[in-house]
């Protein structure tokens, strides 16, 4: 026993030890990604998929240029993918920000007032079922310009989870806390700041986290339909029209990565501002 443990400790190079401990967390995802790329390559090599494989994406001159020049700029519709992504993100920030402000405010009102809840809930439940793409023509018809219409599509797609979760959070304030407020006769303002808001915060963040994913999905859909606006969604549509499939694949990698980062970002804020159990 003693000898074995000494030997084990003696061999323990700190880096190896770290890798052994992190092993499963570290290697398995990498193995998964490599496996996925290999399968994709094989499928496209034996022509089951008519898509180019990862090697072609990397070898193709146009997509290779895109990969290595994310910030080039020729004209509004011909610029690097990082720039295109940034333009789309700006729209998301505006639509999502607006959805957060309106959604949390309305959610608090609906959560506090039973009458308001009963009268508005059917409309909310109905509207939230409308797909982002279905809002595009309505939005264009109503606002007549691409830019505000795109922002509105993000707003209307991402507001529902924020609104509904906030309302649930407000309704679920524990009775104990309400009793404390009643016995102390807290002012409306104190109740709002010290009890309602902190109590509903975890729910609000759940809504915000679902909504950020939806907002990002919606902007791609909106840009694809609204031709002539710069952004990563339109970039894909444009590349498709010209049959540059490798370019599309590079852009899709960007979209996935940004979506993941956005989700983790809100998740990080959530863990900082509204920790799950304190």
């Amino acid at each position: 026993m003693a000898v074995a443990s000494v030997r084990r400790n003696g061999n323990a190079n700190p880096l190896l030890k770290f890798l052994r401990q992190q092993g499963a967390d570290f290697y398995l995802p990498i193995i998964g990604v490599i496996g996925f790329l290999v399968v994709w390559q094989i499928l496209s090599s034996i022509k089951i998929l008519s898509l180019p494989g990862p090697i072609q994406v990397f070898a193709d001159e146009r997509s290779r240029y895109l990969i290595f020049h994310p910030f080039y700029y020729n004209s509004p519709l011909d610029q690097g993918l990082a720039r295109q992504t940034l333009i789309s993100l700006t729209r998301v920030a505006q639509g999502y920000g607006l959805a957060a402000i309106v959604g949390i405010t309305l959610g608090i009102l609906v959560g506090t007032s039973k009458a308001l809840n009963k009268s508005l809930d059917p409309i909310f439940q109905f509207l939230r079922m409308v797909a982002p793409l279905a809002w595009v023509p309505i939005s264009l018809a109503a606002l007549r310009q691409n830019e505000p219409a795109a922002i509105f599509v993000i707003f209307i797609t991402s507001i529902w989870p924020i609104l509904i979760n906030t309302a649930v959070g407000v309704r679920e304030i524990p009775q104990d806390y309400k009793n404390v407020s009643r016995v102390l006769r807290l002012s409306k303002k104190t109740f709002f700041l010290k009890i309602l808001l902190p109590s509903a915060l975890p729910y609000i963040f759940t809504g915000l986290r679902i909504a950020i994913g939806l907002a990002w999905l919606a902007i791609i859909a909106a840009e694809i339909v609204m031709s002539g606006v710069a952004g990563i969604g339109f970039f894909i549509w444009d590349a498709y029209q010209q049959n540059y499939v490798t370019e599309i694949i590079v852009a899709v990698v960007y979209i996935g990565a940004i979506g993941l980062i956005l989700d983790r970002l809100v998740g990080f804020l959530q863990s900082k501002i509204a920790p799950a159990n304190r």
Partner: peptide, 14 residues
């Protein structure tokens, strides 16, 4: 109605 002149120590602390 409830009021702070009759303060309550709640069963589960609250």
């Amino acid at each position: 109605e409830p009021g702070p002149d009759r303060m309550v120590v709640f069963q589960n602390y609250a």
